[in-house]
Design a protein around this nucleic acid. Structure first.
Lengths: 223, 223
DNA sequence: AACGCAAATTAAGTTTGGTTTAAGCCCGCG
DNA sequence: CGCGGGCTTAAACCAAACTTAATTTGCGTT
């Protein structure tokens, strides 16, 4: 999953970036509202964290412009506790959720997970449960027929993407765009290697390949 | 389907070409307005993507000249968001649709599909639905009597062309011109081979051959 | 800092499957 | 009949995807 953080406070931003990268997200960070307006709409982010107290262009304005031009990606607003009135404005402007600063990192993680699930139609489930597999974010493992399987960070975020897009055809470039941040190569076979690992852990049939188009996640049959 | 891209930004153009080729189009690319003016009118393109911010000759001028000389092919204009006034000029000059940069690749695909359908009288349908067959662009399959049939890339683009020209007689050289880009051979039997494959998947009667003239797509009778 | 480990990535070699070529056959039309 | 366009099949070719191994990276430990 690829996230964009729009936040002008450098110290906070650094911490956020570090936290989220540790949690297996590809993270880009922008401090400037103008850049954000453009990049948030053009790059394929899965979720955007937006600080409302930006210099230059206000966070609310950015959000409104995005929504006006048909940008539908989930946006989570960060706002200072003492500006609580902003929350309502934020939701009105099209935010999907908000969080007041200061907040606990774990709280943020949970909100992000919930938003991502929600954006893919997995409503009200505490964890991703798709096609015979449950993904345990806290322990970075996947449960298949009651048996828990350890995953590396890369495998985990790849599988999470597959589970959120179960049944759809996903191209390798799409995977690249969503699992790696701005500065990374396109001509490599990382994806293929990790898919190979996932297949050996979940079973060869869990991921189907559609030659020339991409992959399709099918999951496992219950035993 | 054969497309022409007129775009001077090399990076963007490369990406577009790659995307569209993956989607099964034959793609030519020109960066220069003067070349475009000539080639866009002389080669048998099915659709032209035209960037307005060209050096040398403006995109608008090119479009106007095309239309003045009776060139009726569909033209999709690409324009920067902050030059929004150009859109109206573009439509006045005879564009069929426009898209503001930055845009999502998927959005572009949808517009292209819509324009191609529109240019062939298939109005307002989300997917090609002709002669008992529905073409599913997203999954590269065709649906016949509720049953989904897998197609290879070559079969898919051939079938798409047939469905867009259903009932008309189509010569083999016409197929060559529209399914393969500039640099390719003419004396081969590729088309015949793929027609053969399509017939074996759809039924022998789906495509009729008019000896010495070409093929005619008839589709399948509902069961 | 330096080490050691595991994970991530790159690289190289192999397999697979789609596309094209090629050759022989069929068949409609003179 | 026989010529030529079209059909069919198999084989050749090529690029995508897979696999495995080697290398690099990053991190925790000392």
């Amino acid at each position: 999953m690829r996230l964009l953080i729009v936040e002008d406070n450098v110290a906070l931003a650094d911490e956020l970036v570090a936290d989220l990268q540790r949690a297996g997200y590809a993270v880009d960070w922008l401090a400037d509202g103008r850049d954000a307006l453009y990049q948030g709409a053009s790059e394929p982010y899965d979720l955007i964290l937006l600080d409302l107290g930006l210099p230059g262009k206000s966070g609310l304005d950015i959000l409104r412009e995005w929504r006006a031009t048909g940008m539908t990606r989930p946006v989570l607003i960060l706002t200072a506790r003492d500006h609580w009135a902003e929350r309502i404005d934020g939701l009105k402007a099209g935010a999907d959720d908000y969080l007041t600063k200061p907040f606990h990192p774990e709280e943020l993680q949970l909100r992000i997970q919930a938003l991502l699930r929600r954006a893919h139609g997995q409503v009200n489930q505490p964890q991703l449960d798709v096609a015979g597999l449950q993904l345990d974010e806290a322990h970075q493992v996947v449960i298949k027929n009651g048996e828990s399987i350890e995953l590396t960070a890369a495998e985990f975020s790849l599988l999470r993407y597959f589970m959120l897009h179960s049944g759809k055809i996903i191209s390798k470039s799409q995977l690249h765009d969503h699992l790696y941040d701005g500065e990374s190569e396109r001509d490599s076979n990382v994806i293929e290697v990790h898919v190979n690992h996932l297949r050996s852990k979940l079973g060869k049939t869990a991921i189907e390949t559609k030659r020339g188009q991409g992959y399709r996640f099918l999951g496992v049959a219950p035993s």
